[in-house]
Design a protein around this nucleic acid. Structure first.
Length: 507
RNA sequence: GGCCCGUUCGUCUAAGGGCUAGGACACCACCCUUUCACGGUGGUGAUACGGGUUCGAAUCCCGUACGGGCUACCA
């Protein structure tokens, strides 16, 4: 029987959740759901210096907003915990000791200063970043160079040490990546990576292998930036658990910004978000805007991320989460990096707003338009407004401009758009119109338009020259849905009031 | 510098030996609309370069160029 599919997303709680991170989550999630598997979130908090308070809760908030709930995690529980690496510390030490025992790893006592010195001394123009590798390891302070007795002496004296993997002299390490096919590395070009740090914490390399094994991960998705360290992980799997136990790797192409790797700065510089939700740096108080707050629907956010480097082979571009699950396949993930295009991202959002139901959009609008709870009557009115204006909103935040005037009288009227062709006759027409709204029942939008045009014709006025002034009077500017639709939602009293008020501002 | 990955319109991509290289975003034009959008129709626009293999190459192979990533006791 096939092993049950288990995948994981393994972020370090150091800051905002990036576009690329969400896409990695999404692909994990889609793959898990597609194969009735489990999606696990494991917190990789092994670097205590980079730990940022609040980042972990923030991460789960983002996943919740996206609707990508894990099956197992710090917050969701599960039988493979703990799901925080800092709480699994002793486990890693055990494997580090085992590797040393088998002479596949060794103790290194070099201090950070000594390492820095070594690198500075060995650096040449043709080799700007010397490695801690087979070439130099015998000249450094480690158990390989020092011998058993001296090593024991240092250990007994409590000298701080790290554990480094002993890269084989010359061996070709190969594996089949689900996205790129066979990838191979020559160990002769690789360095002796640290596995266990001086503080007893594992590095990513050791932790990812140990945890993937213990959590029975079957498929490991991660960003392409990890590809160069894959051979270290392959080697550890070989040494510790056997290659046949190793999960299948899939290195996802990177999401690029306008120039190169997408960074937080790019967002600030080019005016688009890079994080899923607003992230506040607790040390500086600096806020980095998120897609949520920018006015994206999570459905659209996931949709656009999925289509960045993946497609189902057809020309379909708009997918619900369920449709993504149904049609997802790793083979159709592109191998090249994809440049993020904010214009296209907005298009996805617009398509989603258009296709979403009024009920789906109602809370989104309500939350943005009102600070306090609203009455049932107001909510009914808002429903009509949403239906009327949603097609014109690219971002949810556009609702302020597109729908705000239904609830609040426009602060300013763009009267310059009227005054050019203003006349006493027109004034008289609007006085009549305000009176009509005030005193008679004018019927639906079509009926109002008919009456409006008939009256204009009887006064020898062009309806077209009266429509724009009416719009300005009701809306404040040259935007919004059909004027009579607006008047209908506003109701006759408010419509009459707005016309009357505008007339006081006109000659 | 070394190692690894990549390369089809400006951007995201389809086409995995065989049509005039298809679609989407953006852009332009026209239509619709007496606001602005939506919508409709059409248009501009690409196989990085050089060699092979083949009757035939965007597709397979090699080289070059370019782009990206990694090269920490960070992930």
């Amino acid at each position: 029987m096939e092993k049950k599919v288990r995948v994981r997303f393994a972020p370090s709680p150091t800051g905002g959740l990036h576009l690329g991170g969400v896409r990695t989550v999404l692909f994990n999630y889609l793959f898990a759901k597609k194969h009735n598997g489990s999606f696990i979130v494991r917190i990789e908090d092994t670097d205590q210096r980079r730990y940022v308070p609040g980042a972990e809760e923030y991460l789960f908030d983002c996943l919740r907003w996206c609707g990508l709930e894990p099956n197992e995690s710090v917050q969701h529980g599960g039988s493979f915990g703990p799901y925080r690496q800092s709480e699994r510390k002793s486990l890693y030490k055990k494997y580090a000791d085992q590797l040393i025992e088998q002479e596949l790893a060794y103790y290194a006592f070099d201090t950070p200063e000594e390492l820095e010195k070594m690198r500075a001394q060995l650096a040449t123009p043709s080799n700007p970043s010397p490695q801690y590798d087979r070439q130099v390891r015998l000249q450094l302070r480690n158990s390989l160079a020092l011998g058993e007795a001296k090593t024991k002496e240092l250990l007994d004296a409590g000298t701080p040490y790290v554990v480094r993997i002993k890269m084989p002299e010359q061996e070709t390490l190969r594996f089949t990546d689900l996205i790129r096919g066979e990838v191979s590395f020559d160990t002769a070009t690789l360095d002796d990576k640290v596995l266990l740090k001086a503080d007893g914490m594992p590095t990513y390399h050791l932790a990812v292998v140990v945890d993937d094994h213990h959590m029975q991960i079957t498929h490991a998705f991660r960003g392409e930036e990890w590809l160069p360290s894959a051979p270290v992980h392959i080697l550890l799997w070989k040494h510790l658990f056997g290659l046949e136990q190793m999960p299948q790797w899939a290195h996802l192409p990177l999401i690029l910004g306008p120039n190169g790797k997408l960074s937080k700065r790019d967002g600030a510089k080019y005016g688009f978000p890079v994080f899923a939700m607003n992230w506040t740096d607790p040390s500086t108080g600096e806020v980095t805007e998120g897609f949520k707050e920018k006015g994206f629907l999570p459905e659209a956010f996931l949709n656009l991320l999925a289509l960045l480097g993946w497609n189902d082979g057809s020309e379909k571009e708009i997918f619900t989460l369920q449709e993504l699950i149904d049609s997802f396949s790793i083979e159709r993930i592109h191998s090249a990096g994809a440049r993020f295009d904010y214009e296209k991202a907005k298009w996805f959002n617009h398509e989603w707003i258009k296709k979403s139901s009024t009920d789906r959009l109602l809370p989104e609008f309500e939350q943005r338009l009102f600070t306090n709870a609203i009455s049932g009557a107001e909510r009914e009115k808002l429903k009509q407004v949403v239906a009327l204006v949603k097609d014109r909103c690219t971002l949810l935040t556009d609702c302020n401009e597109q729908a705000g005037f239904f609830f609040t009288e426009p602060a300013q009227l763009d009267t310059t758009a009227i005054t050019g062709k203003w006349s006493a006759e027109k004034r008289a027409f609007f006085e009549w119109l305000a009176n009509q709204y005030q005193t008679s029942s004018l019927g639906d939008a079509a009926a109002q338009e008919l009456l409006f045009k008939e009256k204009a014709a009887s006064l020898q006025l062009k309806a077209g020259e009266l429509l724009l002034p009416l719009r300005i009077m009701l809306v404040g500017g040259k935007f919004g849905p059909g004027v009579f639709d607006i008047a209908t939602v506003l109701g006759p009293t408010v419509t009459a009031q707005r016309i009357a008020r505008a007339l006081t501002l006109l000659p």
